[in-house]
Each structure stands twice: as structure tokens, then as C-alpha cells.
Design a protein around this nucleic acid. Sequence first.
DNA 1: TCATCACTTCACGTCACGCTGAAACATCGC
DNA 2: GCGATGTTTCAGCGTGACGTGAAGTGATGA
Lengths: 226, 226
Amino acid sequence: MNDDLPDISRLAGLLADPGRSRMLLALLEGRMLPASDLARAANLSAQAASNHLARMLDGGVLRVENRGRYRYYALANSQMAHVIEALACAAHGQDVLRPTLRPKGDAELRLARTCYRHLAGQLGTQLCEAMQAHGYLQRDTGSAMMLTVAGADWLQQALGMDSGQLAGKACLDWSERRDHLAGPLGEAICHAFLAQGLVCRRPGRRSLQVTAAGLRLLQTQLGIQL
Amino acid sequence: MNDDLPDISRLAGLLADPGRSRMLLALLEGRMLPASDLARAANLSAQAASNHLARMLDGGVLRVENRGRYRYYALANSQMAHVIEALACAAHGQDVLRPTLRPKGDAELRLARTCYRHLAGQLGTQLCEAMQAHGYLQRDTGSAMMLTVAGADWLQQALGMDSGQLAGKACLDWSERRDHLAGPLGEAICHAFLAQGLVCRRPGRRSLQVTAAGLRLLQTQLGIQL
DNA sequence: TCATCACTTCACGTCACGCTGAAACATCGC
DNA sequence: GCGATGTTTCAGCGTGACGTGAAGTGATGA
């Protein structure tokens, strides 16, 4: 009938399985994972996982890269990451009304985490805003974020990065409800933060640990007090 | 097993039906609609619609208000609206890859629309940013937005609004990817825009028409060029 | 009080979906 | 080439969800 509506239900249906949602949450930080890892993360048999992955691939939720006998899966694009985050955010809000509560993991996650391979949480949003305030970054048309000459210098000096012609993109942060920096530039900065030991991964979690060196750099260079 | 993950799949499952998604999209602009209207909007029988509505109500997706023999349904909270918008956004992105394309309705929708009873689209985001730039509005902790004294004066003078103690909240705009103003204050401003004839509804659509008077006011008072 | 309207509940048939076991395919290390 | 490993495909089975028709609530209005 009235078919100019977006087909929400098809997409929602692709996510409406506990196993799938566990796999998707595992992929939310932006890494690519082989089918066997995803099956384990979701507590599924290899066949069942393969079936789910094939459907989500066909439905445009995932993309895949073949590497030898492994097949590495990832979220198809950042819009899918947004959907998952929005769902998690809404589902979580409901859980608060229910008996469940998880005080610690949540605070960690809000403070610093990776979202689709760039920095998110308070770390991500404050970094993005401080870089704009210092004139290192400026918003272009739409969601594009451009690095300024001063910004390129600063990245070189502070993080040892050769930022080249990397483009940035504003990405909505669901816990902070403001933009953080995504796109190739955001990914490069996230990579540099990890490489320089300013943050490190907590094994098995999406949250990041900001190291003492990281806190010091953020404080002295950008005036950020996490 | 590892059950500290948000239960995404349960929520997604509640949205994973074409009839339900049509009802939800009809509710996305924030109005409350009786079950019969929703049934008609979704091309469902009364029983089928009632069944769907009961499940979504139980699942925390919807809320309901009884008014005589009518039951008015609405989205339970703004997080649900975010989920629907994110899904629509992602599903739409896929449609672009597919043959479908809808050049006009989309531009309209991006320019100005209602999102959960407040102004969204370019109108919503630019208004929010201009009000901050003019010192009428300032971001408080988190997503809270406070009206300044100058802001209250301006609303009184320009829109004839008695803003009282209304609180604002930042709300993410999916088409613009930046914040617009929501909360009681956002709703009051939206109401005033409609009441003053600065925007008007397009029958049957979510998009809003900005009138000549609206364009003039935005230009002269806030320097916004839509 | 009674007919009507809006909505919900129940029982039932149908159908799609997910899991499993078995088997096939592809790639890697030896 | 051979076995081992990662992954997919297929047939079969059981479960769960949707839609329908019929009956039941509750409120409205004459």
C-alpha cells in the first residue's frame, strides 16, 4: 500500500534474536571477527551462527572479508552501529526500571570506550569539543569535520601522528548525547591513543582504561579533566 | 550466561513486524493516537492491532492513556523515538542502494519536521544552535539545556511565549546529526511556532512547511538562512 | 434500558524461523 | 596429497508468532 515508508521491520527482524544481538554487540566496537569467534561470543553452534550471519549479511547489516579460511565479519556501516547503540540505550533504560542495575560497568563505559573503531564516551566527546575550542578542528558543512593546520601540527607534536589528508566526521555519542569524532581521522586518533599508551583496552570489555599518561596529556594539552 | 548485556533482541523483536513499524512511524511525530487510527494506519484488523499494541505496551515501547472508550497510544519515551529514527535512517540508507529513491519527501523531511512533539531537521538544529550563539540557551550538565534570562525575554518578545520554568533537553537529530531542543521547553517552542503560523503541518506528512513569516523571523531575529 | 461503538480476549489454523545432525566445501599445515 | 580446521549447506523437527472469527468488556448516547 503506502510503500514510501522505510522498511523498519525488516531491519528490526534481522536483529531480533538473542544470539544475533550478542554477536552484534561484540562487533559494536568496530573490530572484525571471524565466524567462530562470533559463534562463541553468542553461545551458538557453528551452523546456527553461520545461518544468522548469512542472513544479516544478506540483509545489509554486516559486511564480510575473506581472509584465507577465515571469514571476518563487521557491521556494514556506522548507521548500523547507531541502531545497535540506540537499541542498547533504550533497552538499558528499561532495565533501570526493572530490578537490574549495573553501577560499575556502566560508569566505565560512559567514561571511555571505542565505538566502531574511534573514541567514544566522555573521552571522545570532550576530546572532540576541546579540539574545536583550541582551533584544531572545525565543523564543515553537515557532519564533516576538518582538521586545521594548527590541528595537524598539534597531532604531530602531541601524538606523533602524520594526519595527512584524513577526513573527520561527527558521530553521535549515545551515552553523552553529543558528537565525538569519527571517520578516518577519528580512527587514526584512536589508533594513536592506543599506540602511545594513552588508553588501553580492558580485555573482554568495550570500555577503555585511560592511563596516567593519557590523563596527563589531556589535562596539560587540552585542559580536559576526565 | 554473560547476562550483563542489554537485551537488544527483545526490543528489536517488538519492532520486527510491518504492521507495528507502520504504527510506530505514525506515532513518531509525538501525537497520541487511538487504537482504531493505528489499526487503519497499519492496514490491520482491530484485533490484530490490539494484540500488537498490547505487546508493545507490555514491552515498554508504548504508553497509553484511557480517555472514555478510546485508548490513546504514544511512544513510551524519547529513547524509543531515537530507536525508530535510527532504524528508519539505516533502512533508508539501504534503500538508496536499492532501486528505490525518493528525492522530494526526503529534502522536505530534512529541512523541518516534528520529532516527538518538538522541532527537528535543519530548522530544529539551527534554531537550537542560534539560540545558544545568541546567549538565549545554554547547555547545562549532561543533556540538560537551560533557558537564560535573555532567552526568556526573547521568547516573550518574538513568540509571545511565557516560558516560565520550562526545562530543555538536547535531543539528537538523525538527519542533521546534531542536537536540537527537546523537553518541555522544546515542545512549548514547537507549539508556539505552530500557533504563530511560523510553520504549519503538511497534512499526512511528518514534514513541516516553514511559512514566509517563519523564514523572516528566523532571518531577522537569529540570522538563520534555511 | 438498549443499541452502538471502541477495544480486548480466546481458540484455532497456518506458517516462518531457529536449532540440530550429517555432509560438503575450502583452506592451511605437514 | 592428507588430515585438521573453519565455514557453509541441507533436510527434518519443534516452537513460537501472526491473523482470523467469535465472543466478551466497558463506555457512550438516545
